[in-house]
Simulated assay, not measured.
Amino acid sequence: MTPAPSRAPARGDRRPATPAAPPAVALPPAFEAFYALHCACYLGYALAHVAESAAPRVLGEAMGEVVIRWADIVRRPNPAACAWTLVSTRIRQRGGGPGHDLEDLALRHLEQTALRHPALEYDAFVLHDVLGHSVEDAAEAMGQEVSRVRYALAAGRGRARPGAVGHPPASRLPDPARNTPQE
């Protein structure tokens, strides 16, 4: 028996090879549920910091970091807070579009030396005051207690008012007439 003739195409007849379909990546169902729950807040936050055309890519990069570290994140006491820290930090680092106006607006929040948690106050400000999310939704997306987000918003607003730093509001000052004995 003679071997079958080779049916390989001649060099000039070669077609470009079509790439194989990329492997399907199965994400953990808990991650997919987490992302579906927080997608709106996360995308809004990205849109507040980067150009609209770049926001999905920047958010995708940030969520890529989260999914890579997912196994470690879900072992922590507060996975939502850990994920928010990764996402918000990445988005702020990549910011460069219309978000600069927003950052200038909120710069007073970040420059105050008296702030204990400037990132919390800034993020609460962006999610609630700028993007219009409820305090509850902002707290859930950031992995914080609702009361803590309310306090951060109030503290930031108090320091943002001129002359408010270090002085209680006039309505809270003691009235000398009320502190003196009545005859």
Rank of each mutant, 00 (worst) to 15 (best):
P56R: 14
R148P: 04
V135G: 14
E183P: 15
Y35K: 13
L173F: 03
H49Y: 06
S53P: 01
I91Q: 01
Q144Y: 08
A55D: 13
H167W: 05
L102M: 08
L110R: 09
P162K: 13
E32F: 06
D129L: 10
A20V: 12
R178Q: 07
A114K: 02
R150H: 07
V25S: 04
P98E: 15
D13L: 07
R159M: 10
A46F: 04
D104Y: 11
E111K: 08
P29G: 08
G143I: 13
A155F: 08
P162D: 08
V50N: 09
T113Y: 02
G96P: 11
G156H: 10
M142K: 05
Y122T: 01
A4K: 03
P16W: 13
A139Y: 15
G163R: 04
G158I: 02
V74E: 01
H128S: 12
R90P: 01
D72P: 00
T2A: 12
G12P: 11
D129T: 14
L102D: 06
E61T: 10
D101A: 05
W70L: 00
P23K: 05
T89P: 14
R178W: 07
Y122S: 02
V58S: 06
V165H: 04
A154D: 12
I73V: 00
P77M: 01
P176Q: 06
V149Q: 02
H100I: 12
V25M: 04
P5G: 06
G99I: 06
T18F: 13
T113M: 02
H128Y: 14
C41I: 03
F31T: 01
R7Y: 08
A48V: 06
V135F: 07
L86T: 13
P3F: 08
H109E: 10
Y122W: 05
S134R: 06
V165L: 05
V87G: 02
G143T: 09
T2N: 11
P98R: 04
A17S: 14
P9M: 03
G44L: 10
V66L: 00
V87C: 00
P176T: 10
E145S: 13
V126G: 00
L153E: 09
I68A: 15
R108C: 07
Y42R: 04
E32N: 12
D123I: 01
T113Q: 08
Y151I: 10
E136F: 07
A54C: 10
Q182M: 11
A55N: 03
L102Y: 10
P22F: 06
D104N: 13
V126A: 00
